[in-house]
Nucleic acid binder design. Sequence first.
DNA 1: TTCCAGGGTAAGC
DNA 2: GCTTACCATGGA
Length: 288
Amino acid sequence: MRVSVRVFELEDFDLDATMRSGQAFRWRQDGIQWTGVVGSRWVRLSREAGATVLRAESFPQCEDWGWLRHYLQFDCSLRDVIDRFPKDPVLLQAVNRWRGLRLLRQDPWECLATFILSSTKQIVQIQQIVAALCDRFGTPILTDPNGIVFRAFPTPTQVAEASEASLRECKMGFRAAHLLACARRVSNGSLDLESLRRRPLEEARAALMDLPGVGPKIADCVLLFALGFQEAFPIDVWVARVLKDHYFAGHPVTLPALRIFAREHFGPQAGYAQQYLFHHIRMLSKRS
DNA sequence: TTCCAGGGTAAGC
DNA sequence: GCTTACCATGGA
């Protein structure tokens, strides 16, 4: 297979932490290499320990790498983001440990679909469900030397034309009906995900929450991981736990109260702060 | 075996 | 407005 190779000078970028932080579910690690699919491209990324360069391979071949710059957000200055964080002990600890963790800018449909599948699932299981969905319904891109077929994420139309029973065979359970309903709303044009980028946060959020299977948390994930709203603050069980334990001294707090606190405390870069907190506490709990 | 997972929904207070 | 049961599935 013929691939294009390019090396990028890159500071403040922890590829492992970024790919491991539970925002995208199709990347696989092999040594220092991360292999995945972005849009309709097979991609392999690697970064030597301590190196200042990121090596990227693409199939099909390309001259213009703007799509990768966009996906990895090369233009985002992490220093500017972190400078605007509140200086509280927990967040400082997370940043000191995981500096270089980045937000990706994913395709809105893929992000919406995968987070609909994420509800009350461990990240490993989400990866398995998403892989099954892509294997069954995605358009092939290439077959690697090991015989593994890489496929694009299924389009809204490809999912909309599937039966609920065939989706359930991908082990997504009750989430199948939600995914199918959303695929229909996107594929028939009644919801234009791209147009949400240009709307105010609360309007875009309300439009997402109007979808079946999409509540506050999943809406915030799509706003943050795909639509560029860096103040969106998804609160899952892990983030709720770290907020209660370290910002409310373990006292019981309702979810709406946590959302209000997060917006006021973390400010315009709340989404980045959330990702650092989420990754930090998950890595701490793994060791024990 | 039992608990829990990057939740949402509807029914019941 | 807030709490609860339920929704499938499988990892730990």
